[in-house]
Design a protein around this nucleic acid. Sequence first.
DNA 1: AAATACTTTAATGTATACATTAATATAAAA
DNA 2: TTTTATATTAATGTATACATTAAAGTATTT
Lengths: 223, 223
Amino acid sequence: MMQKSRSSLVNDAYRRLKQEIRSNRLPPGFHGTEPEMAERLGMSRTPLREALVLLEADGLVEMKPRRGIYILPILPQDMKEIYEVLTAIEPEAVAVLAARKLSETELKPLIDATARMEQALDDDDLEAWANADDEFHKELLILHGNKRFLSIASLLFDQAHRARVITLRMREKPYRSTAEHKTVVEHIIKGEIEEARNVYREHRERAGAELLAILAKYKLQQL
Amino acid sequence: MMQKSRSSLVNDAYRRLKQEIRSNRLPPGFHGTEPEMAERLGMSRTPLREALVLLEADGLVEMKPRRGIYILPILPQDMKEIYEVLTAIEPEAVAVLAARKLSETELKPLIDATARMEQALDDDDLEAWANADDEFHKELLILHGNKRFLSIASLLFDQAHRARVITLRMREKPYRSTAEHKTVVEHIIKGEIEEARNVYREHRERAGAELLAILAKYKLQQL
DNA sequence: AAATACTTTAATGTATACATTAATATAAAA
DNA sequence: TTTTATATTAATGTATACATTAAAGTATTT
């Protein structure tokens, strides 16, 4: 959802704002006006607005006519929807990879990502774990090669990022999740299509259910 | 991917350009400049550019720096990707609807759409058939309720529209496709989850394969 | 005539200007 | 004091201005 071709300032604004939203420096509910945001970014309103239009299409902000810019929260309902889409897409991608009989060299990005997940668990570094997890999912879709799978999933990861970061600290350490990733990779290597699909699917369904349970338990109605 | 909130001119430009692209009045490969397109739409470059940025995010146009605006063609590879995503998403949605045990009243939009597909076949009106088909798929996802499913599918339908319209005239009349839609609705009504999912999945896979075969047969390398 | 250098043109990327209007603040009336 | 009316402020939506620069065209040289 943006290429080299986009001019520099629009691109800068898009990237910087997205990063600030991800990192919660612009938290959900934040309200700003175009002049003040443009000033903060050191540009005029014109490129800022083009970036905001894109961020709005990404579902990260809302431009309310005459009321300014709001950073949108993620609601439990959003997480439910996001996990539903990922549950539909990713097991499919995994099945295709398994059918393709990839070599371990080709699967290296996935193997490396699982290794880093394990290392992060040993180091008790949840943020590193989350990054490795993100990378696993992204590399999976890159390997698959369907650009639309990747861009849809990336959009959803962006939307869900804050919620995942927060809930990561509220649940058991992700030993099981890590093990499931390894199992999936093994099924892919062995070309076990349905097994790969099912394990991944169950992984996604369980992860989604767990996350929603946490949101309910802690009454996190928005993030 | 755009709401009431977007101001009128940006919205107008977005809608009109999208419609002109769908209808091939702005055909793939078309090249324009901002001043001339703005003039044609009766507005300045500012709102036009905001609309173009959105259309570019939708994958319908490309803004090449200093070279102008190009209407993007659909390649066979694009259709392959689009059908893969739909194959992942829609059978999932169908399964959920089947599990939900909906009444025939609630399923009316789907039943009506299939009726209109049959009517269109009787009338030998392919365009009406395509519209009814579009509506079926859209209503299905509306019933499901996951806004992300709907917006993803809508985006893909928009991208694929031209290719579908053209190939519709190059293939057998869609009796089989129509029958499959009816079968799916019946499975949903009876709550037969896996049957619904599988029929729909096979429908999508066959439809995608057929379409790609036509593109290959007629050497349509872009549409 | 071909190749090169120079001009011109015009489109983009961005800043600025401005009219409209929602929201707020202030004043007047009850 | 509360309500209503008016004035003020300021943000949006859009148009316009302008600097930069790629591309096209022209002139110059060989």
